[in-house]
Design a protein around this nucleic acid. Structure first.
Length: 472
RNA sequence: GGCGGCGUGGCCAAGUGGCUAAGGCGAAGGUCUGCAAAACCUUUAUUCGCCGGUUCGAAUCCGGCCGCCGCCUCCA
């Protein structure tokens, strides 16, 4: 069984073989920090996290680099609007972004470079491109990459040079200094709009173009050629196409060897937009009473190359499904003393194998989760027959921990619940217990109804009564 | 105009030539319970947008049609 990934460049699933045995070097296109991320943005990082976790589960030593774009048109415009310096603005949203990642149990990338800290590397690369005649300086002082100098341009996105249409969006003013409308900026000469944002370099006074940062930073930390480059499908063109062109032309290398892209997220079947009222940031959902764990489960639950339909039904389904997994884990405590049973071992082994095969197949998360639930059902059934033992529990604990590491959701803490004092609930439960012992069921039911009205569900068992909050 | 994707049970969602079309949610029935809830078990698509074709055999391949959607210069 071998690991395969769908490579956008080859448009096919390809066996994954890293450059260096046992090691994977991966670059994720990170956010432009001009605002807090919405759940669509966050999907890309949940995906990258799942990818990294699975590679690590396979035993690879992963080096993950995720950049922060902290200088571009949007960050500059926004900082001026808010009356902040560029770094004041970008640091605020960068921190908010990191915080969102942590909330979603996304492991921090090993290296998280910011574009503004790597202008020197970008300048060096642009100089090399100029030297090799893949770039030119335009009359306005900006430097552009000459697309016609790279014959393989368009291979990633499947666009042929001659097909690229000059759309209405390309105003003639903005591009009149370019030799060819398809050429893209490597270096933007300073203008009024940039205000105090500029670097004085050998290239002149200005700032880097967008695409060059990812080339410079990925190669700085991962080497000329590295294994995986990820991003959203919207990055395929032009961003990644341009990265490939400038990187290969500057180095003669391969650059990234596997390109993985995740699709968009839509909400309730529609494109997320503020006017439709279906535009959500992480905190918006938490404020509605959903937990980060439920949100992660939903975002993760659809294959990364499919469009994810994010719905509130789905969020509730996640709550039930996770509850079932939690109940399963809790049920291990009831296992009787004894050696591992052959029946349970068979179910557990099969599930482990199915999970591995599913994830190895381009991260087929649906099939992987199905393997978990199949095992849950089989083991529950064995438990009801009194078959499962402490020996089985050991094996389950081990496998569960492995899956948890890979998915990052099994033991993820339910936060944002139980803020405030829950003592009143315990008091009512105690009163009800006494009423029940006195066979005063009328009062006992009254208390239960009262709690239900407040969204508290009771669960009676031989060990006592426990409670939990109902889905809102 | 160019390139590309999608349409599977009430909802979400795997499967892309052949054992009985995964799994989750929901729903129904059962076990348990003072009654419930929760939990657990069982059941829940002769059928994969429609029409043709290829094949011993198709949700899976080919053609046509219908419907939805993405990208085509800075948007994860």
């Amino acid at each position: 069984m071998s690991l395969v990934f769908h490579d956008t460049y080859k448009r096919a699933k390809m066996p994954f073989e890293p450059l260096e045995d046992g090691k994977v070097k991966m670059y994720n296109c990170g956010p432009t920090v001009y605002d807090t991320a919405h759940i669509g943005n966050l999907r890309a990082y949940v995906f990258a996290d799942l990818l990294r976790r699975w590679l690590e589960a396979k035993g690879y030593e992963v080096t993950q680099v995720q950049n922060i774009t902290d200088v571009d048109d949007k960050t500059i415009r926004r900082s001026r609007e808010e009356g902040l310096t560029l770094s004041e603005l970008t640091e605020r949203f960068r921190d908010a972004f990191f915080s969102d990642l942590e909330t979603l149990n996304i492991l921090p990338a090993h290296i998280r470079p910011a574009a503004t800290d790597h202008v020197d590397e970008m300048v060096t690369m642009i100089e090399e491109l100029l030297k090799r005649d893949h770039a030119y300086r335009a009359p306005d002082g900006s430097i552009y990459f000459r697309v016609s100098s790279y014959s393989e341009y368009g291979n990633l996105s499947g666009k042929r040079l001659e097909d690229l249409r000059v759309g209405e969006r390309v105003t003639s003013d903005e591009y009149e200094s370019k030799d060819d409308v398809r050429d893209f900026a490597l270096w933007k000469a300073w203008d009024e709009e940039d205000g105090s944002v500029f670097w004085e370099t050998s290239l002149g006074k200005g700032r880097p173009g967008w695409h060059i940062e990812c080339s410079a930073m990925s190669m700085k930390y991962l080497g000329r050629d590295f294994d995986i480059h990820t991003g959203g499908v919207d990055n395929i063109f032009p961003h990644h196409e341009n990265e490939i062109a400038q990187s290969r032309c500057a180095t003669d290398g391969t650059f990234a060897r596997y390109w993985l892209h995740c699709d968009y997220l839509i909400v309730e079947g529609k494109k997320m937009s503020k006017s439709l009222g279906n535009f959500f940031k992480l905190q918006d959902l938490i404020d509605k009473g959903y937990t980060p764990r439920e949100i992660r489960y939903v975002i993760m639950g659809t294959h990364y190359r499919s469009r994810l339909n994010f719905t509130f039904d789905g969020l509730h389904a996640a709550r039930s499904a996770l509850g079932r997994l939690d109940e399963f884990q809790a049920s291990w405590q009831q296992f009787k003393v004894g050696d591992a049973s052959a029946e349970a071992a068979t179910a557990i082994d099969r599930a482990e194998k199915q999970f591995d095969e599913a994830m190895d197949d381009d991260l087929n998360i649906s099939a992987a989760i199905a393997a978990i639930f199949n095992m849950v059902r089989e083991v529950n059934s064995l438990t009801s027959q009194g078959v499962t033992t402490v020996g089985d529990r050991e094996r389950l604990t081990q496998l569960w921990a492995k899956w948890d590491l890979a998915l990052g959701v099994l033991s993820m803490k339910e936060s944002s619940d139980s803020d405030g004092d829950d003592g009143w609930i315990e008091e009512l439960i105690e009163e009800r217990k006494q009423a029940r012992q006195a066979k005063n069921f009328a009062r006992a039911d009254e208390i239960r109804d009262e709690l239900v009205a407040k969204g508290i569900l009771l669960k009676d068992s031989p060990e006592g009564t426990t409670w939990k909050r109902e889905a809102n």
